[in-house]
Design a protein around this nucleic acid. Sequence first.
DNA 1: ACCTGAACACCGTTCAAGT
DNA 2: ACCTGAACACCGTTCAAGT
Lengths: 198, 198
Amino acid sequence: MPPEPTEAIEQTDPTPRPREPLTRERIIETALHIVDSQGLSRLTMRRLGDALEVEAMAIYHHLPRGKEELLDGLVAHVGIRPARPAGPDGWRPALADWAALYRARLTEHAGVLPLLVTRRNPAALSGTAASVQEVLRAAGFAEEAAGTGAHALLGYVLGHAALEARGGARAADPEGAVDWDARFTAGLGIVLAGIAGL
Amino acid sequence: MPPEPTEAIEQTDPTPRPREPLTRERIIETALHIVDSQGLSRLTMRRLGDALEVEAMAIYHHLPRGKEELLDGLVAHVGIRPARPAGPDGWRPALADWAALYRARLTEHAGVLPLLVTRRNPAALSGTAASVQEVLRAAGFAEEAAGTGAHALLGYVLGHAALEARGGARAADPEGAVDWDARFTAGLGIVLAGIAGL
DNA sequence: ACCTGAACACCGTTCAAGT
DNA sequence: ACCTGAACACCGTTCAAGT
């Protein structure tokens, strides 16, 4: 018995099912997957198109500013902001939780870290700093102290994540491995204690 | 009276004088100048060759690993390490001075900041961390405390420089300009006080 | 030893064209 | 509206060749 025609076509044609439609969200998530698995330098519009099963030029229809907009999207995608705490003394655990979570996301997606430092996406980093400052201000800190604390904390988290992500910075410790979790937490304690003393 | 022949040649020939010979040092300094004035993205081997009045391919003779080696050279060129203090209590001013100097270099050459986060040049950042840790260890800190302090301080300096360099991170301060010098010094005080309490 | 010229395999992006 | 194909002006890097 000969095979049913349409079935035979479906088996030989390499792309039988209609593809999921391209969206900004799907493009950025696929790009992040490439960065995580292959590194930032291997994220090209052509390779991204391949991963999306589409020609590279189709991406420009959803991200008119091209690769610039793609990289800005990656930065915004990994960033998170602190939640406003309930009680008046809740700022310290709230910021400690946020810092731990932010650090986890940054080390998880270490490939985007250089973008945080390069991109002039004003909303990304300054918005995060503003949120931290607002938490401190709501807890009763003066404007200037809240600003100092926000930059000290965000700076520490970013910088420590950079040290971790590079795997380097072993700090004269040739044989033993550094316990980065413990080290981050200890440094975080230093910064938070210093902010409390403002 | 007709002009003296060799002089006439010197006036019409566009490249009369013998060029300074190419060296690794001169290549890296010229590259840094391009990064400072035009941005990291405009540093290309061809443009660097133009600036050196040489074909791009000549650079490979002095930097066999090509652009990779060039970028590593830039990172090493802007980095500085803390000096070992004289007295036993000198660690705090010594590290404060170093931090201020390092921050100044990083913001001056903001274009190389992304490279510090990207480059897997193990000697660059880990060597700096090791030097800071050694200053603390020599001041009597235990191994683990010295490591924590070194990473906290270096992390803060790197992260704060990143916040500054992006100009962003205005922290809910739409109208007024941030006094970055004062803010860096205040945050540095927080971190150093925290280290002293270890 | 040091530099050049031509070539290769890539990039990001445009633009007219297809459906 | 959404995607494609061909083209343009660039990249980093190689390699044989010049001096």
